[in-house]
Design a protein around this nucleic acid. Structure first.
Ligand code: MN
Ligand code: MN
Ligand code: ZN
Ligand code: ZN
Lengths: 143, 143
DNA sequence: TTGCAAATGAGAACTATTATCATTTGCTTC
DNA sequence: GAAGCAAATGATAATAGTTCTCATTTGCAA
């Protein structure tokens, strides 16, 4: 595990507490890259860590504001978070199994900037979600 | 007002009822193109029409399933609906005033298809939302 | 008209999330 | 290391958006 976690928190202006370290750890060395608050909460519980759900929500929001995590609003109404690695990307979400795949396309990005500026908008950010079915892949829920 | 509304409903396999006609009317001749359930409910109330909130939600979902409306999930957690005019488009949302502008870009659309199919996904649909500030436009909330 | 399945409306229930507040914990200072 | 204290936590209440339940009403076909 990453011994610099307390530093990561300090650098972000957050004091190093048990719940924060556990949650950051889940993202830094977890197998799941995209997790909702509920996902995080359940993982903590099942690994015996006793963290309140309110704290999970609070910490996720703080991490987002501190730039440690990025939040996405996928369909379905719940926020999903992932480690902020400084590289913007967009997502393909499988409607059968929920599998999330990432992609980045410079052409799409530049078209967006162009379109927005032509129309007199100063872009803050954007979200591009492609909802699809895995056809060639292993999809645990589909066959 | 559109005298063919009952036909529109019939064609969609929905029987022509008072709440359905009122709601469809709001979208067909309303000034607001993108409306949430709450928006629709409030408009009905303020025009003296007594429709239950549950009915509004039910009817909006039925209209979506019937292909009369399209639903979008903008940030903020509430669904927004608009008349389905058969032309897919994406949205720029002003973070100051909430103004929504529509755009369509063939290059972006085809890049998306390409990316998804290269990775073995069969696209159902997608959403592209650009969050921005109106800089050249009239923004009632900004200045 | 009558009959009845379909639709509606009031309110309960549910889901995701935020707010409240008494208790606990991570530093700082002695 | 112990004391002090602001910041953080956790249990739970509250909120927002939406769906469910079920008794009553309505559209429409006979
Ligand atoms: Mn991602
Ligand atoms: Mn639109
Ligand atoms: Zn992008
Ligand atoms: Zn598009």
């Amino acid at each position: 595990m990453d011994k610099n976690q307390p530093e990561h928190l300090k650098n972000a202006g957050l004091k190093s507490t048990v719940p924060r370290l556990k949650i950051l750890g889940l993202f830094e060395l977890g197998q799941e890259r995209h997790m909702s608050a509920e996902d995080v909460y359940k993982k903590l519980l099942s690994s015996g860590d006793d963290v309140g759900l309110a704290t999970v929500y609070r910490v996720l929001t703080q991490f987002e504001q501190a730039g440690l995590l990025v939040r996405h609003y996928f369909e379905g109404g719940k926020s999903v978070f992932e480690l902020n690695q400084g590289k913007h990307h967009d997502h393909i979400v499988c409607l059968q199994c929920g599998h999330v795949e990432e992609f980045y396309d410079a052409a799409i990005e530049s078209r967006q900037k162009k379109i927005a500026s032509e129309r007199g908008f100063a872009v803050h950010d954007h979200s591009l979600h492609i909802y699809a079915d895995c056809v060639k892949k292993q999809c645990p829920y589909k066959q």
